[in-house]
């Protein structure tokens, strides 16, 4: 007899598509938060499936730190063109220039926390009522508490101890004027699931994820790429290494790992033997035990 059950990747896919369609049905003006990283690329890919043969009915919103890998921006523009969707950009540089936020100082300064203001401004300016993110519960302990539909008050804040219960597949996206939602369709995916799926579907991702030769310095226990935005310390030595990135973020703080994995197969293989979480290479999360929770409460992704 034929067996009527799904394998885990198909089940995760089906769940994510369900959530994306609920977002479309329940909100007026939803967008996909697009960072150019693999998780937001995955969400975009799933949205394509969810609405085929219609076009993706969401705009993409990129919160641009200004500290980009040039490859990410090229990839973004190319994808937007191919999908025929609208791109919205919220610029952290503009927020700084307008005096909405203050640039951090010192060696470990990042624009990570500054993104919160830019993001919330973009949500307000564009009258966005739901921002779809690629956050996953396995990424970080505060994220493990996220709902699929996650409520934000009129200051854009998250109250993790007072969330709406989410039962069965019934998602409650009701809000009052000024409030908004974040939606996380790939909540239940792990890093491994993401790679296995990208490999299975042969999804295009930026070249930065594949092993390549690059100038780097050793900082905060990982290889930080040399770029126009990086201020080298006196004692820091520049190496040329074959590395790849597990996550893509602000170029000044996203560390690469030494690797020879230059195909999706090899990456999936490498990830399955990896002994550190992907966020372990991001200094923004190393600041304190609750760095992510603190940022998220204020309105971070």
């Amino acid at each position: 007899m034929k067996k009527y059950y799904l394998n885990y990747l198909d089940e995760l896919e089906s769940e994510a598509i369900y959530v994306l369609r609920e977002v479309w049905a329940q909100f007026e003006n939803p967008v996909i938060l697009f960072s150019g990283g693999k998780d937001s690329i995955l969400v975009t890919h799933l949205a394509k499936k969810a609405f085929y043969p219609s076009k993706i009915p969401f705009s993409l919103l990129h919160v641009d730190t200004g500290h980009n890998f040039p490859e990410t921006i090229a990839f973004r523009d190319d994808l937007v063109e191919k999908l025929g969707v609208k791109l919205l950009v919220g610029s952290v540089q503009e927020s700084i220039d307008e005096g909405r936020v203050q640039e951090e100082k010192g060696k470990n300064a990042t624009r990570n926390a500054l993104q919160i203001t830019t993001l919330l401004d973009a949500i307000e300016d564009n009258k966005i009522d739901c921002a779809i993110g690629g956050g996953r519960r396995d990424e970080e302990k505060a994220r493990a508490k996220e709902r699929f539909f996650s409520h934000r008050d009129d200051f854009g804040q998250w109250d993790p101890k007072n969330q709406r219960p989410e039962l069965w597949n019934l998602l409650n996206g009701k809000y009052f004027e000024g409030e908004h939602f974040r939606a996380f369709p790939i909540s239940n995916w792990t890093e491994m699931d993401v790679w296995n799926y990208i490999k299975r579907e042969n999804i295009q991702i930026p070249s930065l994820y594949f092993a390549h030769q690059r100038e780097v310095v050793w900082r905060n226990s990982s290889w930080i790429p040399v770029s126009d935005f990086l201020k080298l310390e006196e004692n820091e030595e520049v190496f040329s290494k074959k590395i790849r990135f597990r996550t893509l973020g602000d170029i000044t703080i996203t560390g690469g790992i030494e690797s020879d994995a230059d195909t999706l197969e090899k990456i999936a293989e490498e990830v399955s033997t990896m002994r550190k979480t992907e966020r372990g290479d991001r200094s923004d999360d190393k600041r304190s035990e609750t760095a992510m929770e603190d940022r998220k409460k204020q309105g971070y992704f």
Partner: peptide
């Protein structure tokens, strides 16, 4: 997961964990 949970050694809200 949450700050209060670790400080007080209690669990406040449903948390999801994954393994394969």
């Amino acid at each position: 997961g949450l700050k209060d949970e670790r400080e007080q050694g209690i669990t406040i809200d449903v948390a999801y964990r994954y393994f394969t």
